[in-house]
Measured scan of single mutants.
Amino acid sequence: MAAGGDHGSPDSYRSPLASRYASPEMCFVFSDRYKFRTWRQLWLWLAEAEQTLGLPITDEQIQEMKSNLENIDFKMAAEEEKRLRHDVMAHVHTFGHCCPKAAGIIHLGATSCYVGDNTDLIILRNALDLLLPKLARVISRLADFAKERASLPTLGFTHFQPAQLTTVGKRCCLWIQDLCMDLQNLKRVRDDLRFRGVKGTTGTQASFLQLFEGDDHKVEQLDKMVTEKAGFKRAFIITGQTYTRKVDIEVLSVLASLGASVHKICTDIRLLANLKEMEEPFEKQQIGSSAMPYKRNPMRSERCCSLARHLMTLVMDPLQTASVQWFERTLDDSANRRICLAEAFLTADTILNTLQNISEGLVVYPKVIERRIRQELPFMATENIIMAMVKAGGSRQDCHEKIRVLSQQAASVVKQEGGDNDLIERIQVDAYFSPIHSQLDHLLDPSSFTGRASQQVQRFLEEEVYPLLKPYESVMKVKAELCL
Score class of each variant (00 low, 15 high):
Pro293Lys: 02
Arg404Met: 09
Leu222Gly: 03
Arg303Val: 03
Lys276His: 06
Leu255Val: 11
Asp191Ile: 10
Phe195Glu: 02
Asp268Gln: 06
Ala388Leu: 07
Leu272Gly: 09
Ala49Asn: 03
Pro56Ile: 07
Leu352Val: 10
Pro366Thr: 08
Ala342Arg: 08
Met26Gly: 01
Gly197Asp: 04
Val88Tyr: 00
Gln409Met: 11
Leu272Met: 10
Glu462Tyr: 13
Gly203Ile: 00
Glu60Asp: 10
Gln320Glu: 05
Lys199Met: 02
Ser301Thr: 12
Ile373Met: 10
Lys295Val: 01
Leu128Asn: 14
Leu443Ala: 05
Phe36Trp: 15
His7Lys: 15
Ala146Gly: 08
Ser306Ile: 01
Gly200Thr: 00
Ala308Thr: 13
Gly54Val: 01
Pro318Leu: 03
Gly451Ala: 07
Thr354Arg: 02
Ala22Tyr: 10
Asp32Thr: 14
Ala49Val: 08
Met312Asp: 02
Ile424Gln: 15
Asp129Val: 10
Leu55Thr: 05
Leu135Phe: 13
Arg190Phe: 10
Thr94Glu: 14
Gly96Trp: 02
Ser438Gln: 09
Leu152Ser: 08
Trp175Pro: 00
Phe208Arg: 02
Ile72His: 08
Gly54Ser: 10
Asp268Cys: 10
Arg37Phe: 11
Ile106Met: 08
Thr202His: 04
Ile62Gly: 02
Tyr466Lys: 15
Trp326Glu: 04
Leu352His: 06
Asp398Thr: 12
Leu307Glu: 03
Ser151Gly: 13
Ala49Pro: 00
Gly240Gln: 06
Ser407Lys: 01
Met292Arg: 02
Lys233Cys: 11
Ile122Leu: 15
Ile265Cys: 14
Val198Glu: 01
Ile265Val: 12
Glu302Gly: 01
Pro446Arg: 04
Asp441Lys: 12
Asp73Ile: 05
Cys98Gly: 10
Asp144His: 14
His86Pro: 00
Ala410Gly: 07
Leu275Ser: 13
Lys264Asn: 01
Lys276Asn: 06
Glu376His: 06
Gly259Tyr: 02
Thr154Met: 12
Leu469Asp: 02
Glu228Trp: 14
Leu128Cys: 12
Leu406Arg: 07
Asn421Gln: 06
Glu481Lys: 14
Val405Gly: 14
Phe236Lys: 04
Ser23Asn: 10
Gln177Gly: 14
Pro467Asp: 09
Tyr34Trp: 11
Phe327Thr: 12
Gly288Phe: 04
Ile139Arg: 02
Gly419Asn: 12
Leu53Ile: 15
Thr350Asp: 15
Arg459Asn: 15
Val254Met: 08
Arg459Val: 10
Leu440Met: 08
Gly203Phe: 04
Val29Trp: 06
Asp317Leu: 06
Ala49Glu: 04
Phe327Leu: 10
Leu469Tyr: 08
Arg296Glu: 05
Ile386Asn: 08
